[in-house]
Amino acid sequence: MKYLLDVTSLELFKEKCTGCGLCAEVCPHAVFAIKDKKAEITDRDMCMECGACAINCAYGAIKVDAGVGCASAIIGGMITNSNPACGCGDSATKNSECC
């Protein structure tokens, strides 16, 4: 299943890429492929901005505005004027309805 088109913040800087392939390994939606020892984006609309590729790239070749794609978290962020965060797991808030 594919979500909205042309919205992802995913960016790949090919000049920094060493072709190690870790981005292709960690991506749960097969957004990356390695061709000619460089990563390339196959279908950017499959990206869900989880950030796995960027945090695992030791060479800083990937940038993505990672975050939760969760309406209630984002609405919460708008109301409190903070970054959208899922309430799950904050021991202070025993929110059993979350996630």
Partner: peptide, 20 residues
């Protein structure tokens, strides 16, 4: 239905923000 974006495996933050 919009709340279900928090449970899916394919909705990203930029997309949900655009919807909202």
């Amino acid at each position: 239905a919009l709340q279900f974006t928090g449970s899916t495996v394919f909705t990203g933050m930029s997309g949900v923000k655009k919807e909202l």
